[in-house]
Computed example of a mutant assay.
Amino acid sequence: MNKYFIAALGLASTALLPAHALLVTDVNQIAQPTITADFENFDGLLTTGPELVAPGVTFTGDAGSELGANNRDLGENGLWGGFGNHFAAGANVGELRFTFGQLSSGAGAFVNHYALAALPLGLVISVYGDNNQIIETHTVTVDTDINGYDEGMFLGITRANADIRSISFKGLGVVVDNVTVTTAVPEPQTYALLLAGLALVGAAAKRRRQPQA
């Protein structure tokens, strides 16, 4: 096997390696342009979906999920809905998932969950690829004031490449608002690298087939 063929295989395989992911806690870390689902067009809709919640963003969830919820007791994490804001709420223990019409490089939401000192459970944030396989997951505990209203934190995941098809939030009494997703596909540098590698593979294979002078 000649050195050009080896180099081409290395280049192509590098382009196929999983993209680096990053857990983020600031909505500004989700690359622009974005679209946001705020659930203000819903009012207490109990549904498992699919339900379009923003252009190109589809909701699915477990039984008991609610779109446009206006109040939730989060135990020692306070209350949500104190100012008439609508949000998405999960069942006692369940999943809220948001699937995107196009692959994205970043997504997240403002979240919280039910909490008790005797039950220190967090929520699980995961992103899935085009094959519905988890490509990144994190477990995070949100800790807010027991007397607070609509408190929480932004949690999101960003990727070096646009390979996120959906994002989900799972846990006990999970609440989610302002789901934000990058809508533009970044420059396809990885795909250009892959094509270049495959072209070198083809050229090397062609040279090997040619009769020697």
Rank of each mutant, 00 (worst) to 15 (best):
P120T: 09
A213I: 05
F39G: 04
A109E: 02
V24W: 01
S104F: 05
P188E: 08
R72A: 12
V142F: 03
A160R: 03
A21W: 03
G173P: 06
G84M: 12
G156R: 07
D145Q: 10
F87E: 00
L22F: 09
V53L: 04
S65C: 07
N2L: 07
V174S: 05
L9C: 15
A118R: 08
A109T: 09
I135A: 06
N71P: 00
L116P: 02
G202V: 15
G156F: 02
A15M: 10
S126C: 04
G10L: 07
N2S: 12
G101P: 04
I30L: 09
T34V: 15
T36N: 10
L45F: 00
T60Y: 01
G202Y: 08
T183I: 13
L52A: 14
L67Y: 07
Y114W: 15
G173D: 12
A162P: 05
D26W: 01
T48N: 08
D177E: 09
A15V: 12
A88I: 04
V175I: 10
Q133H: 03
A21I: 00
L193S: 15
E40N: 12
T60L: 04
G68Y: 09
D26Q: 14
T34I: 10
V57S: 00
D130G: 04
T190A: 14
L121C: 10
G44V: 03
L23G: 08
A31I: 01
D145C: 01
G61A: 06
F169W: 12
Y4I: 02
T190D: 14
Q210E: 15
A184H: 13
A117Y: 14
P188L: 10
A12W: 08
H20R: 15
G197D: 07
A69V: 00
Q133E: 09
V24N: 04
S13A: 15
A37R: 00
N28V: 07
P211F: 12
A54R: 02
G202H: 04
A88H: 05
Q133I: 04
N41W: 05
V181Y: 02
D177V: 01
F59L: 03
L46V: 13
S13L: 10
E76S: 13
D43G: 07
A107E: 01
N147T: 05
L116S: 12
L22D: 14
N41P: 05
A117H: 12
K3P: 04
N85S: 11
A199I: 15
V124I: 14
G49I: 01
F87H: 04
I157N: 05
I134T: 13
L9A: 14
